[in-house]
Write a protein that binds this DNA or RNA. Structure first.
Length: 575
DNA sequence: GCCGTTTTCGGCCCGACTGTTTTCAGTCG
């Protein structure tokens, strides 16, 4: 697992190169770009190196011969000489210090030269003694700003789940709409792209009363304090511990501004480069020709069209090849939430759910679903009240009775979330498994096995012929647990060979598989389901997060079996 | 240091806001 460390080292190298003068700023940029690419890569660079050698590394965008060598050097020796050399000259913890709002490499270096600040502890002491305000280029305000940044640095734990961020953003949008000050309001940024976690919120507003609008957002109940406030841009810290940027633009610029603030950054950089090649300038105000006339801008689709490409859905804008596909008019037609016909991962009070079978089924009816699959835990999950074979039999009887009561309004499918045990066997008898409409299986225990053992364990279960769906394949919990070790190539190949469908678990804390693994699994021609893993009725609304992940993984309706009617669903499950 | 629909050399995205400036550097996204 080298990605995060190498990304960190490359960023620090970039920080130090920035201090070497303008001549090296492009070199610094190259390191930063590579750091970004490597940092957001699912596959480990160590594995890439092992499997494909140095050529596998240079295939990564932004990684050329030199940086590939540096990665190899780190994987093999645990060190990068260039980094060590620079570090002798700049013995400073840039990684932490530059994370503090308002501090970049240059100001950090000034603090080091003037006060010997090497890390956040030194910085805190310097702040306590009010030493910062005297340094050239720093004043009282800077000192306060840095203090606030430092407090925030110690108080937050990184990025927030989309499941928390999106509802917050939607609530703010509703308030702005109700204010009557805005003609248009929309969510942009990584929230619009449905990333699994977001670092801040971006809200774009069209308003003819820009000043009043900025006052309004600065005064929202959700706001803890104001970070910056100008006539068109305001940044606030929200009480939930997330910063939020508000931008006001003219309606002529709405499309290009939405495009720009949706990102991601690399996608935008590529778009601007394409604009330049075509003789245009692209910024958040529009596309401008040589005579500085706006040729597009009010509509986002128009911006893409003007650059000679099809409209790219926000979830795909990650600079993963979508721009090339858009230019060739070969983009996939992404699945939408309206395509979903049922939910196959639902718990009830029979195990650790908080709502009854009836209540969960009624919720499915209210969502307009054609079918719902009930999948409570098996006995190995004793903390969740998992059931044994006998209990499952009476559970199925209850489902039959319920089906009679609800009639044709919905089809209720019998299943279970069956533990794949340590030895690869399943937690129920074959007889019980055969009574199910489909079998949703998952790893919950002994999660610390080696990559090879864990992969063998799951493949053995696949080969039993009783696994229809592998639920939350990596068993990760975002921001809490990394997940089990797996050889994904072998796993996905085996899923394809054995007709096992992979779950995209829509629970916001899981989102498993995530976008990168979906893209990887797709290469093996596997099918997917999106399941909410609901433990109460409200959880069934999590489907949209799973849809977000599926769309980020470029999936179409045909790839997702619960986007099909009951007939095609059962056909896909019964091999 | 990367990269190629003008290229193996010579470019490299672009603008808002702030503080401390006296015209701009630094930071951020």
């Amino acid at each position: 697992m080298y990605n995060s460390k190498i990304s960190e080292l490359f960023n620090e190298i970039a920080d130090m190169l920035d201090l070497e003068g303008d001549a090296r700023s492009f070199e610094a940029r190259a390191y930063r770009k590579a750091a970004l690419v490597i940092g957001s890569l699912q596959e480990d660079v160590g594995d890439i190196l092992k499997n494909k050698g140095i050529d596998g590394l240079t295939e990564l965008p932004g990684v050329g011969k030199t940086l590939a060598e540096r990665i190899k050097e780190y994987v093999e020796t645990g060190k990068i000489k260039k980094y060590e050399d620079l570090k002798k000259q700049y013995p400073i913890d840039f990684d932490s210090l530059t994370k503090i709002q308002g501090l970049g490499a240059k100001r950090v270096f000034k603090l080091y030269k003037a006060l010997g600040v090497k890390n956040v502890d030194d910085l805190r002491k310097a702040l306590e003694n009010h030493k910062i305000r005297g340094i050239e280029g720093f004043g009282e305000k800077s000192e306060e700003e840095i203090k606030k940044g430092l407090d925030f640095f110690f108080s937050t734990g990184g990025r927030m789940l989309i499941g928390t961020a999106l509802p917050e953003a939607e609530s703010i949008v509703r308030k702005i709409e109700a204010s009557g000050l805005a003609q248009k309001v929309t969510i942009a940024g990584s929230t619009r792209r449905m990333r699994e976690t977001v670092g801040d919120l971006d809200i774009l507003i069209v308003s003819s009363k820009s000043d009043k609008m900025m006052d309004f957002v600065a005064g929202l109940d959700e706001v803890e304090n104001i970070v910056v406030k100008g006539p068109t841009k305001t940044t606030v810290m929200l009480k939930i511990g997330l910063t939020c940027d508000f931008r006001v633009v003219e309606k002529e610029s709405f499309g290009s501004a939405l495009q720009y603030f949706t990102g991601n950054k690399e996608h935008n950089v590529q778009l601007r480069q394409i604009a330049i090649k075509q003789g245009y300038k692209l910024n958040e105000y529009g596309i401008f020709d040589k005579a500085d006339r706006r040729v597009a801008g009010s509509d986002e689709k128009e911006v893409y069209a003007k650059l000679g490409m099809d409209y790219i859905e926000p979830e795909m804008r990650e600079a993963r090849g979508e721009i090339e596909l858009a230019q060739q008019h070969r983009l996939p037609k992404l699945v939408t939430i309206n395509d979903i016909r049922g939910d196959l991962h639902v718990h009830t009070t029979h195990t650790d759910g908080l709502n009854t079978l009836d209540e969960m089924v009624q919720k499915a009816v209210s969502l307009g679903y054609d079918y719902v699959g009930i999948s409570d835990h098996t006995k190995s999950e004793y903390v969740a009240g998992g059931m044994n074979d006998k209990q499952f039999v009476s559970y199925f009887k209850e489902i039959d009775e319920l089906q009679k009561r609800v009639g044709d309004s919905i089809k209720v499918l019998k299943s279970g979330e069956i533990d794949i045990l340590k030895d690869g066997s399943l937690d129920l008898s074959n007889k019980t498994l055969e009574m199910m409409d489909y079998r949703l299986c998952a790893v919950h225990t002994n999660i610390n096995m080696s990559k090879e053992q864990m992969t063998n364990r799951i493949i053995k279960a696949f080969e039993s012929g009783y696994v229809d769906i592998l639920a939350h394949p990596t068993d990760r919990l975002i921001n809490e647990r990394a997940g089990i070790q797996l050889d994904f190539d072998r796993l996905f190949q085996s899923a394809a060979d054995n007709g096992v469908v992979l779950e995209i678990n829509a629970s916001p804390g899981r989102l498993d598989l995530n976008d990168e693994l979906i893209l990887k699994a797709s290469q093996y021609k596997v099918k997917f389901i999106i399941g909410t893993d609901s433990h109460k009725v409200e959880h069934m609304d999590f489907m949209r997060y799973g849809i977000g992940m599926a769309r980020r993984g470029w999936l179409e309706k045909k790839d997702i079996i619960n986007a099909g009617d009951i007939k095609s669903l059962l056909k896909a499950l019964n091999r």
